[in-house]
Computed example of a mutant assay.
Amino acid sequence: MNSAVSTPTRLKTSAMIASIAAEGQRTVAAPFGHALAALAESRPQIVGLSADLAKYTDLHIFARQHPLRFFQMGMAEQILMGAAAGLAHEGFIPFATTYAVFATRRAYDFMHQAIAEEGLPVKIVAALPGLTTGYGPSHQAAEDLALMRAMPGMTVIDPCDAHEITQAVPAIAAHDGPVYMRLLRGQVPCVLDEYGYTFELGKAKMLRDGRDVLIVSTGLMTMRALEVAEQLRGDSVDVAVLHVPTLKPLDEAAIVQACAREGRLVVVAENHTVIGGLGEAVAGVLMRHRVMPAGFHLAGLPDEFLAAGALPTLHDRYGISREVLARRIQGWLG
């Protein structure tokens, strides 16, 4: 009876801009848009550009407060990146927003040649990262981190929540070089402030310690990791969570120190394909430093084109929901 009641509830979520917040979870509206608009008050070099998606990347808030510093480029992502590069050459700090699939797949060469090779301070802020929409492969950027990590000179960030996005905006604006940052938009959960967390570019942070399992996570999967840790505590499983918001440059020292603890299972959790993301990056770090944890598992998206559908159902299907991730970890513990 219970399962029959719960299934329709999970299926009614909108496929396109579905919320990742749990029912009753504390959220903040449009943290990126508000943070950028506030920062621009004291940083006249900041400009905003979008490829016909300002409303869906929360950049419309910046546009409303700074209309003369906002540029609507239309549905032309290559032109978006080229224009951002030109503005950066003239001394501006452009924030270019679009969906992650369009930035990384459609405009990759423009980012590579016009922005990254020139070392320009363009900040590419990309919505719908990983599996945060149910519209299928055309809109699911499951491989964006792998593509951006491979680009020389590109700093890559995957923030967890509204608290981190608000702090990351001034940090990436101050960074002298190009940045790719995944974006959670709309009503974004807020959890990291409860852990006294402060974002630092290039730094991983241990949010909680535990003797049995270490979850190394990034982006929204840190939120899930913290939920899993609380759930497994009821089963007497002690879970640590290391949050890695910056995938490039990677905080190798923090990862080695956390993973070297004897007898602890290591699970890398990410909202990204298991190919070329945080999991393989962590595996490479451990191999280079000759660290051998008690066990090592990847909890990411499979190497396949993902299905379309309701977001909670897809998260269950691909193993990144709280309930399924907790079961997977229990299985790996034996």
Rank of each mutant, 00 (worst) to 15 (best):
D209W: 02
I124D: 03
G186C: 09
L314K: 09
K205Y: 07
R224M: 10
V101D: 01
R327V: 08
P249I: 08
A307L: 06
Y318R: 11
A35G: 13
S19E: 00
I115S: 05
A258R: 04
S138G: 13
H315Y: 06
V122E: 05
I17E: 06
P170T: 10
Q187E: 12
C190M: 10
G219H: 01
F70M: 07
V268C: 08
T222Q: 10
T13M: 09
N271T: 01
L49I: 02
M206Y: 04
M292F: 05
V213I: 08
T104Y: 00
A63C: 09
A63M: 03
Y195H: 15
F92K: 13
L306M: 11
A258N: 08
G276L: 03
L183E: 00
C259P: 06
E143R: 11
W332Q: 02
L59C: 11
R328T: 13
M1A: 13
I320N: 06
K248D: 03
A114G: 05
G300S: 07
H60V: 06
A88I: 00
P67E: 01
L250A: 14
Q113T: 15
F199M: 02
V285Y: 02
E23N: 04
A54R: 01
E200S: 13
T313G: 12
P249D: 00
V216M: 02
E194I: 00
G210K: 07
A142T: 13
Q167F: 10
A116H: 08
H272S: 14
I93S: 11
R208L: 09
L39S: 03
H315V: 01
L333M: 13
I320R: 01
D193W: 00
P67G: 12
V169T: 12
T273D: 08
D209L: 04
R233F: 07
A37P: 12
L147A: 15
Q65A: 15
P67Q: 11
